Amino acid sequence: MTVYGIKNCNTVKNALDWLKKHQVEYDFHDYKTQGVTAAKLKAWSQQVGWESLVNKRGMTWRQLDAGTQAGVTSEKAAIALMMEKTSVIKRPLIEVDGQVVALGFDEATYREKLG
């Protein structure tokens, strides 16, 4: 199991705390230091939809100019943005054997799928 995110994100911290508390083993992939490939983003997009991957509630999205935001109308545009600004990817994303099992932190989902 791999948890993708950014170490200083509060939502990621909550998710990692939950995993530790429930003794769930995982590898952590930090977008800031390790990046993410277009192929990985495309694979996730095919599973959960590119719209779900772009965190439009986050500070990174809100700091984008209106033109950039308006230009994110396709998977291709979303992947380009997510590669350029990894902080715009919704997090954490949890992947098991190539499958996205959780996006964001929701304790009920974690109990059901990871607990």
Rank of each mutant, 00 (worst) to 15 (best):
M1A: 11
T2F: 11
Y4G: 03
Y4D: 06
G5I: 11
G5T: 11
N8C: 11
C9I: 04
C9M: 06
T11Y: 06
V12H: 08
K13L: 08
K13D: 01
L16Y: 04
D17P: 10
L19Y: 03
H22E: 07
Q23D: 07
Q23C: 01
Y26F: 06
Y26L: 02
D27N: 14
D30P: 00
D30S: 00
K32V: 14
T33Q: 01
Q34W: 05
G35K: 01
T37Y: 08
T37E: 06
A38S: 11
K40A: 13
K40E: 15
K40P: 10
L41R: 04
K42N: 12
K42W: 07
A43R: 12
Q47D: 03
Q47M: 01
G49V: 12
L53R: 06
V54T: 05
V54I: 10
V54P: 07
N55A: 04
N55I: 00
K56G: 10
K56C: 10
R57A: 10
R57F: 00
G58N: 01
G58T: 07
G58H: 05
M59N: 13
M59W: 10
W61Y: 05
L64M: 14
D65W: 08
D65Y: 02
D65A: 04
A66F: 06
A66P: 08
A66W: 04
G67C: 03
T68F: 06
T68S: 09
T68V: 12
Q69D: 01
Q69I: 03
A70H: 02
A70R: 01
G71I: 03
V72P: 00
V72T: 04
E75C: 03
E75S: 04
E75T: 03
K76V: 15
K76A: 15
A78K: 01
A78I: 05
I79F: 06
I79C: 10
A80N: 09
L81R: 02
K85W: 11
T86E: 13
S87C: 05
V88D: 10
V88Q: 02
I89D: 04
I89H: 02
I94D: 08
I94F: 09
E95N: 02
E95F: 06
V96K: 15
D97V: 08
G98S: 02
Q99I: 14
Q99A: 14
Q99D: 15
V100M: 06
V101Q: 05
V101G: 05
V101Y: 00
V101F: 05
A102D: 09
L103D: 00
G104E: 00
G104F: 05
F105H: 07
A108Q: 15
A108M: 13
T109S: 13
Y110R: 03
R111L: 13
K113Q: 13
L114A: 05
L114Q: 00
G115I: 05
